[in-house]
Simulated assay, not measured.
Amino acid sequence: MQEAIIRSATVNDAERLLEIYSYYVTDTAISWEYDVPSVEEFRGRIEDVLKKYPYLVVEENGVIYGYAYAHPFVGRAAYDHSCELTIYLDKDAKGRGYGRKLYDALEAQLKEMGILNMYSCIGDPVEEDEYLTRNSELFHQHLGFTKVGTFYKCGYKFGRWYNMIWMEKIIGEHR
């Protein structure tokens, strides 16, 4: 059995990554999209990220079990030393350490790029339900992120309101 590897995503991974992501769109309030994007749109999203930021997959025995990528935080030049992160794991692949492996590799690459602040925007339940728990917040906290803000009842999905939180991890010195 081969150990999990982290590698750069390619547009050829789009179908499998979309398969992973689709569950989060249709069955959870983790993604606030209502409709699953097309494979073509998802390929375009991967291409856009790869122009400037790392987009990584975790793969074991030839099967992709998750992905993580960085993207612009706010999108103005003054924020160029900051970025936002996104991560999704196959719904049946939790608890195997894939999330940590992806984020550790992503953080290392971002440091090399001169990124100092990493942010994560996370759906946060007003009350935990079958669509959203606090697992993502706890995962990020475990990796050294700190909650820095809450937007109350700003997302609406499955006939209910959800909060959104921002979490931050400082990975470099601000000189």
Rank of each mutant, 00 (worst) to 15 (best):
L116E: 15
E60L: 01
E84H: 01
H142E: 09
C154P: 01
H142V: 01
Q109I: 01
R134Q: 07
K153I: 00
A68V: 04
F73I: 00
R96C: 09
L85D: 15
Y79Q: 10
V49T: 13
N61W: 00
R134C: 09
L102R: 12
H81P: 02
A93G: 04
F139P: 06
G75Q: 00
G155I: 02
P125G: 05
K52E: 11
N135Y: 13
F73C: 05
A70Q: 10
R100V: 15
C83W: 08
F151S: 10
E137Q: 09
K147F: 07
Y65V: 08
P54N: 10
R96A: 09
T86E: 10
H140G: 11
V63H: 13
Y69E: 10
T86Q: 11
C154S: 05
M118N: 04
D129Q: 02
L89C: 04
L132Q: 14
E130M: 08
G123C: 07
L132T: 10
G123Q: 03
R100T: 15
E128M: 00
E60T: 06
Y98R: 08
L50Y: 09
A78W: 12
I64M: 08
Y119Q: 06
A105G: 14
E137W: 09
Y79R: 11
S120Q: 03
F151P: 00
D48A: 13
H142M: 09
I115D: 11
S136R: 08
A105T: 08
G149S: 05
E60I: 03
T146P: 00
Y119R: 04
R134L: 10
D129L: 04
C121P: 00
S136K: 07
Y69H: 15
C83H: 12
V58I: 04
Y55A: 12
G149H: 01
L50I: 06
E130C: 03
Y88I: 06
K51M: 08
C121F: 05
G155L: 09
G155S: 12
M113C: 08
P54C: 11
L106A: 09
E127S: 10
G66Y: 02
A108K: 11
H71K: 14
Y119L: 11
D90Y: 00
G99I: 06
V58T: 04
G66M: 04
L132H: 14
I64D: 11
Q141P: 00
K147D: 01
Y79P: 14
I122M: 04
E127T: 11
A70T: 04
F73E: 06
F73S: 06
S120I: 05
L132A: 11
V58Q: 00
L56T: 08
K91H: 13
S82M: 12
Y53P: 09
N117P: 07
A93E: 03
P54T: 07
S136A: 14
L110P: 14
H142T: 11
G66K: 03
P125C: 07
Y53V: 05
Y67D: 03
T146D: 12
Y98C: 07
E127W: 00
A78S: 15
E84R: 01
H71G: 15
L85K: 14
D104S: 13
I64C: 10
D129H: 05
K153Y: 03
Q141I: 03
E60M: 06
H142N: 13
P54Y: 10
L116F: 14
A70L: 09
T146L: 08
Y69A: 13
Y67A: 08
Y67T: 02
I87C: 14
G66D: 02
K101M: 15
C83S: 13
R100L: 15
Q109E: 15
L89T: 02
F145E: 03
F139Q: 02
